[in-house]
Design a protein around this nucleic acid. Structure first.
Lengths: 203, 203
DNA sequence: GTCTATACGGCGATAGAC
DNA sequence: GTCTATCGCCGTATAGAC
């Protein structure tokens, strides 16, 4: 295992990611980024040409970091129950390690004329194995028939929203970050239980 | 009923709200606001002293618009099932009429040293009738015993998150705004059903 | 109350020395 | 590759005429 020093470019990019995720594009200045990287404005533009370009690069990565795991797990070849447990577990672990990710991604996707747009096209020509799987189980009579788009959205909501409202929750319940994360760990059981109980209950 | 012309102050404030909600504080300029109000920068500062002050005023209102109805309905004097149905229905109607509200509020609450902070203190010394009610029903054996904070958070998540990810959903599923709202109307039944089925199922 | 004109600072970006 | 110095622009805010 070779020990790598971080290159200046990587240091700047990491600093930029940190600041962008915390404050968003509009509240971030190139000077912010340079300072966080213990560098200077000239170098930021030397490596990335502009604040805008740097932002695009980071947003692309964050977008992928958020949605690639979702698509990957939902298209896994696993039985329904195991898949749901795995999805909730892995997503919560991912978001615990990068809790600002969803707020950042969704926030920067606001507005019709968004800086984004093109990213969507490339992202999900993907087929959705999860929905098919729910239809199959329903056909077999193992779970109730219902609108499974609603189920999928509820699953996403219950996993992701707590991180978006993390600050609110922490203040309201007077929690440290550690305590909040323990609360989220509890959800690894609570969410699948609710979804599965509903699906299995005679409609 | 007297017909009121909007005052210049109100026109500017409405314009500011529209722009702030769409783009956030950092991506909004005083010029934006003035243009949307068919006015000029001087007038914006004449009525509100600064962009910051104007923002604070609007944020306060949006914060209240979001959380006051939540607290109000959850503290209503209604049986559990009716309360949950009412909560989901009223919140979805509210958010349909102002779909950018949650994204705006949560986005501007990011970061520890946020422009906000003080608002929290005044907001919820409120007791939470909803959680007490769940405990009561559990004591009577009408619903299962579980961590009701998780239930409450799941309820919020399923109602609010879809509006935060609205753009994503609309693009992914190729929906118009009308179709998205119909999808949300469907949730008025789907969400309470899931929650209640889970609560009533023998744990 | 409203507008034009302007002050002033901070922003993104680059030139040019090393 | 790195840094200092600086340019030009656009941001917020205000002075002052009407």
């Amino acid at each position: 295992m070779i020990k790598h020093e971080l290159s200046t470019e990587e240091i700047i990019k990491d600093a930029a990611k940190k600041v962008f995720l915390e404050k968003g594009f509009g509240n971030t200045t190139t000077r912010d980024i340079a300072e966080h990287a213990s560098s200077n404005i000239a170098l930021v533009n030397y490596y990335f040409r502009s604040k805008e370009k740097l932002f695009q690069e980071i947003f692309r990565e964050c977008f992928a970091d958020t949605f690639a795991p979702i698509a990957r797990i939902l298209n896994d070849d696993l039985p329904l129950e195991a898949k749901i447990y795995k999805f909730v577990d892995q997503m919560i672990e991912l978001l615990k390690s990068d809790p600002m990710l969803p707020m950042f991604v969704f926030s920067e996707m606001r507005g019709e004329n968004s800086k984004i747009g093109s990213l969507m096209a490339e992202m999900h020509p993907k087929e959705n194995r999860f929905l098919l799987q729910l239809e199959e189980e329903a056909a077999k009579g193992n779970i109730r028939k219902t609108n499974f788009d609603q189920i999928e959205l509820s699953l996403m909501s219950m996993v992701i929203f707590p991180f978006i409202s993390m600050n609110m929750i922490k203040m309201k319940q007077n929690l440290t970050t550690e305590e909040f994360y323990r609360f989220m760990d509890e959800r690894k059981k609570a969410i699948p239980e609710m979804i599965l109980t509903y699906l299995r209950h005679r409609g």
